[in-house]
Amino acid sequence: KVFHKLIGLAGVPRIRLHDLRHTSASLLVRQGIPIKVVAERLGHQDASLTLRIYTHVYEEQRKEAALTLNDLLKDTAKQVR
């Protein structure tokens, strides 16, 4: 009840407390916080559960890492020439 009252006072869109927890975890994963740390914060005993729930965020990071590696290889190839 207090949470919903604070949301009303803040004038932000109404969300569930669980949604706030999910958002927090997603942002932590997206910032590159180790999944084990995120899992501990959420109270998950097994980090694989956290990975299964937040795979969409983790997958974005993997794609970003692949792009970075691709750019690095292109730069290296230019230097070799």
Rank of each mutant, 00 (worst) to 15 (best):
A77K: 13
L51I: 14
L69D: 11
E60F: 02
A66Y: 14
V12H: 05
P13Y: 04
A25R: 10
H56A: 13
L27P: 00
H4P: 00
H18C: 06
L67S: 06
L6M: 11
R30Y: 12
H22R: 15
V38G: 02
D46F: 06
D71R: 14
L9N: 07
V57M: 12
A77P: 00
K63F: 07
Q45T: 15
I7K: 08
H4Q: 11
R14T: 12
K74I: 09
K36N: 02
K36Q: 09
E64F: 11
R21V: 14
P34I: 00
L69C: 01
D71V: 00
L72W: 04
R62N: 01
L6T: 00
L6Y: 13
A25C: 02
T68C: 04
Y58H: 12
V38F: 05
L72G: 00
G11H: 07
R16G: 11
R62K: 12
S24Q: 09
Y58V: 06
E59I: 03
K78R: 15
I35H: 08
G32W: 04
H22M: 07
H44V: 02
A66L: 14
T76A: 12
H44R: 05
I35M: 12
L20E: 10
T68K: 15
I53R: 11
A10C: 07
V37F: 04
N70P: 00
R21Q: 14
H4Y: 14
A10D: 05
T76S: 05
I33T: 15
V2E: 10
G32Y: 04
K74N: 09
G43L: 01
P34Y: 01
I7W: 04
S48H: 11
V37Y: 07
H4A: 07
I15L: 12
R30M: 10
E64S: 13
E60W: 01
V2C: 01
A77Q: 10
K5A: 02
I53P: 02
E40S: 13
K78Q: 13
D19G: 03
P13N: 04
D46R: 15
G32V: 04
L9C: 03
P13C: 01
H18Y: 15
E40Y: 10
G11Q: 04
S48R: 14
E60N: 08
G43H: 08
R21P: 02
L6K: 11
I33Y: 10
R62P: 00
H56F: 06
D19L: 02
E59Y: 03
L42P: 05
K74M: 06
V12W: 03
T55A: 11
T55V: 02
A66F: 07
T50W: 08
P34W: 03
A47C: 01
I35D: 06
A25L: 05
L69F: 06
V2M: 02
V80K: 15
E64V: 09
H22D: 13
V12E: 12
V2A: 13
H4D: 11
T68I: 08
Q45K: 15
